[in-house]
Design a protein around this nucleic acid. Structure first.
Length: 459
RNA sequence: UCCCCUGUAGCUCAAUCGGCAGAGCGGGUGGCUGUUAACCACUAGGCUGUAGGUUCAAGUCCUACCGGGGGAGCCA
């Protein structure tokens, strides 16, 4: 029986079997108190082991980290601090944890230390909360799109195109790094590699996603994504999960509406499923977590154009390290001013200058801007980046040539514009960034089970 | 990759001006107790990140490297 259900229903007077890991144990004269956690909730169940139990001598040797099963009757607790407790008739010891060696204490640890024991940290309160919320968010994402007729597409992890244009990529190869085959010019001969050409881990499923959107109307991807950037920040990972919906017949406004509904939906799911976890995280990490999340669900996002954003910044009276100038990208300090000081809620910034955005974004009639949108959140910055896509073949080809991209490499992508091209739009959501926001965790390395970042691939 | 801060017991941290390396928690032993991050007593636990340098003397000052944190860039 899950401890969560026992506590939620306040079950009393019934027999129960609970199994889990001991958070702490205290001895009294005639019995021992266990705090048992099975991962179903941040809350523990108190288990009373009477000294008359046949294996009591073994029981009192169990410390923090040990795994046990307890069978007995749920009763009203005479002590303070819990309404219900389990009076054990039988305790089975699965595995002890040597108290001198087990690194998790019942006191608080720093997140930095817990990161060095990423295989044990899910047994801590904090990471229990974080990963229950991660589960809620992942499920809510599927539910949101499925309820709206979006088809889940598995775009490839390995890609042969080095033209996805979103940062450096990890190479995938079976060639011997010490002695790769060479061509006449001495360059590495990738025609002898596994795929007969160079291949990499994907940095985005968008281009493939667009091909499916022009068949199924509405699709989304949800999978791992890889960036080989030497980024050392609390907001970047080398391996992370990304959600990329793509919808035919959507324009930029439809896209922004979808993104806003989507974010509100998945945050609401946390309130429905993880109130205990949110309260724990709010208490220890981010005091304003719950009001902040509630505010986001309840109020419409602010929508401004890039041009309006620049004038807001120019008239702000703030002294920025980087001056704001129409045509250069918004700096982190600018985004934080907009979301945290000026507007104080998520901001959808649209219609960026085309010179700072990707080739596939739809050209606006002004000839200067494209139908791009970024959704900026307080504290963590860009959560969503998206756009309406350029569906006009001639305009798209013009952009590819203008940016000196390899036209032939895009032959299959361009076919979507050659045959039955339609207006369409989509966006990318960084799953871990959304999770950071929902949990209040300030470092992205603490919201993924085993983080990968420059210099670290342990576990 | 750049800038700033930082590294002392298993964990969290002290150590004044450069002058004997300490505490709390955790561990062990004993005691007490319907206990709540229990309490009381005793106890073990250290190449002060690594390598050099300055000095009679370095945890402390200097240099380099390594790890961690924050900020920036790149982005989701």
């Amino acid at each position: 029986m899950a401890i969560k259900d026992i506590l939620k229903q306040n079950l009393k007077g019934v027999e129960a079997l609970v199994r889990g890991w001991v958070r702490t144990r205290r001895d009294s004269k005639e019995f021992s108190f266990f705090e048992l956690n099975d991962g179903s909730s941040v809350k523990n169940l108190q288990v009373i082991a009477d000294a008359t139990l046949p294996n009591y001598q073994e029981i009192v040797k169990i410390n923090t980290g040990g795994a046990i099963a307890a069978r007995g009757r749920l009763v009203e607790s005479p002590g303070k601090g819990q309404a219900v407790e389990l009076r054990a008739d039988e305790i089975v010891i699965y595995g002890a944890a040597d108290p001198a060696a087990y690194p998790l204490q019942k006191k608080g640890h720093t997140l930095e230390f817990l990161r060095t024991i990423a295989h044990l940290r899910p047994r801590s309160n904090t990471f229990g909360c974080v990963f229950r919320i991660r589960n809620t968010l992942a499920f809510a994402i599927h539910k949101f799109f499925q309820e709206r007729g979006f088809l889940y597409v598995h775009t490839p992890i390995i890609t042969a195109s080095d033209c996805e244009g979103a940062g450096s990529m990890f190479r995938v190869t079976t060639l011997d790094p010490a002695a790769p085959p060479r061509d006449e010019k001495g360059a590495v001969d990738f025609s002898q590699d596994f795929f007969g050409r160079q291949s990499f881990l994907t940095v985005s499923g968008q281009l493939e996603g667009e091909t499916y959107a022009t068949a199924f109307s509405r699709i989304y991807t949800f999978g791992p994504t890889f960036r080989a950037e030497n980024s050392n920040t609390p907001r970047h990972l080398a391996e992370f999960w990304m959600i990329e919906p793509e919808a035919a017949f959507f324009d930029l406004r439809d896209n922004a509406d979808l993104a806003e509904d989507f974010l509100k939906y998945i945050i609401s799911a946390c309130f429905e499923n993880n109130m205990d976890d949110l309260e724990f995280l709010a208490k220890w990490y981010e005091k304003e977590l719950i009001p902040t999340l509630r505010h986001i669900v309840e109020t419409p996002f602010e929508r401004i154009t890039y041009t309006e954003a620049v004038s807001l910044l120019e008239s702000s009276g703030e002294s920025f390290e980087y001056p704001t100038k129409w045509g250069s990208d918004l700096q982190t300090e600018h985004e934080r001013y907009l979301t945290e000081k000026r507007i104080k809620k998520p901001v959808v910034v649209t219609d960026y200058p085309k010179i700072i955005k990707a080739f596939y974004m739809r050209n606006n009639d002004d000839g200067k801007t494209v139908a791009a949108m970024d959704i900026l959140f307080p504290r963590i910055g860009e959560v969503i980046g998206g756009s309406q896509r350029e569906e006009r073949l001639d305009v798209l080809l013009g952009r590819i040539r203008e940016m000196n991209l390899n036209e032939e490499a895009y032959w299959w992508y361009l076919d979507t514009r050659r045959y039955g091209s339609v207006p369409h739009a989509g966006f990318g959501l960084g799953f871990e960034r959304a999770l950071q926001f929902c949990t209040g965790m300030s470092n992205i390395r603490d919201v993924i089970p085993f983080p990968r970042f420059p210099g670290w691939a342990e576990f």
